[in-house]
C-alpha cells in the first residue's frame, strides 16, 4: 500500500513538473521572441542610421560636385567671355571714333555671359535634384559631361517612368554621377550609355562604357576601390542591389537596381 501511495505522489509531482516545464517554456519562448524583436529593431535602426548618414554624405558630395562645376563653368565660360569683353572695351579710346562692330561684339559677349550665368543659376540650384525626376537630373548631368567634350553620352529609357522616393533618387543620382566620374577619370572611354529600365517594382539603371575596363577583383583591393564599394553600399542601403562587370580592354558595366519605395 505505501508503494502505491508513493507511486501516486510521484505521478502527481511528475505531472506538476511537466506542466511547470511547459509554463517555464512558454515564458522562455516569449523572452526569446522579445529578444529577437529587439535585435531586429536594433538592426533596422542601425540600417536607418547608416542610410541617413549616407544620405547626408551624398548631399554633401553632390554639393561639392556642384561647386566644382560652378567654379569651372565660371572660370571657363563666363570668366572668359567677360575677360574678352573687358579687353575689347579697353581698346576703345576716347579720341577714336566709335567702332560699332566692336561694341556689338562686346554686347554679344556680355549677353552670352549673362545667359550662361542664368543657366548656371537655374541648373545648379541646391535642391535641383529634388525638383526634377531622376531622368531629368541625369539628362542635365549628361549635358555637363558633353560640354566638357571628348565623350559621347547617350541616355535610353525602357518602360513607363515612375516616381522614386526623394532620398533614394538622390542616392541613385550620386551613384550615376560617380559612375560618370569614373568613366571620365579612369576609363579612357569614348562612349557611355546610361540605360533606365522601369520595372513594376524597381528601376534598373545600367551605365556602360567602352573604355579600357579593369580587373574587378584587383580593383577592390586598390585604395578607394574606384568608389565601387561606395556604389555597392549605397545601392544596398536603398534596399536595392548593384553589380559591376568589367574586364581589361572590354569596358565596364555598372548595374544598379533600386525599389521605388
Amino acid at each position: 500500500m505505501p508503494d502505491a501511495k508513493e507511486q501516486i505522489t510521484t505521478t502527481i509531482l511528475a505531472v506538476i513538473f511537466v506542466l511547470l516545464f511547459f509554463g517555464v517554456l512558454f515564458i522562455f519562448m516569449l523572452s526569446y521572441i522579445h529578444y529577437r524583436r529587439r535585435q531586429n529593431a536594433r538592426e533596422k535602426k542601425a540600417m536607418q542610421d547608416q542610410f541617413d548618414q549616407q544620405l547626408m554624405q551624398t548631399r554633401l558630395e553632390i554639393q561639392e560636385q556642384t561647386f566644382r562645376y560652378l567654379s569651372e563653368e565660371i572660370h571657363d565660360h563666363v570668366g572668359q567671355l567677360l575677360s574678352l569683353a573687358k579687353i575689347q572695351l579697353s581698346s576703345v579710346r576716347d579720341t577714336e571714333p566709335v567702332d560699332h562692330g566692336l561694341i556689338k561684339d562686346v554686347y554679344s559677349n556680355v549677353t552670352r555671359a549673362l545667359q550662361d550665368l542664368r543657366s548656371l543659376a537655374k541648373g545648379l540650384h541646391a535642391g535641383h535634384i529634388r525638383h526634377f525626376s531622376i531622368r531629368e537630373a541625369v539628362d542635365e548631368e549628361v549635358q555637363r559631361v558633353r560640354k566638357a567634350g571628348g565623350l559621347k553620352v547617350s541616355v535610353t529609357s525602357e518602360g513607363d517612368e515612375k516616381k522614386i522616393k526623394e532620398e533614394k533618387q538622390l542616392i541613385l543620382f550620386r551613384i550615376i554621377q560617380e559612375c560618370l566620374q569614373n568613366c571620365l577619370k579612369h576609363a579612357s572611354a569614348s562612349n557611355i550609355n546610361i540605360g533606365f529600365t522601369w520595372y513594376a517594382e524597381q528601376l534598373r539603371v545600367r551605365v556602360r562604357d567602352d573604355g579600357q575596363g579593369f580587373d574587378t577583383e584587383n580593383a577592390a583591393a586598390l585604395a578607394g576601390g574606384l568608389g565601387l564599394e561606395n556604389i555597392r553600399n549605397r545601392a544596398r542601403l536603398t534596399g536595392g542591389s548593384s553589380s559591376i562587370h568589367s574586364r581589361p580592354g572590354e569596358g565596364t558595366t555598372v548595374t544598379v537596381q533600386i525599389p521605388y519605395e
Binding site: L20, G23, V24, F26, I27, L30, S31, I33, H34, Y35, R37, R38, A41, R42, K45
Partner: peptide, 27 residues
C-alpha cells in the same frame, strides 16, 4: 505576450518588473 510583442526598442524583458510579477503569477 503583450510585453514580448511590444515595440519599444529600449525595453528589456528580464529587467521589467511586470515580467517577473506575471511570470510568477502564471506559474
Amino acid at each position: 505576450a503583450r510585453l514580448a510583442l511590444r515595440k519599444e526598442e529600449d525595453s528589456h524583458l528580464l529587467i521589467d518588473p511586470y515580467f517577473w510579477i506575471n511570470a510568477m503569477i502564471l506559474l
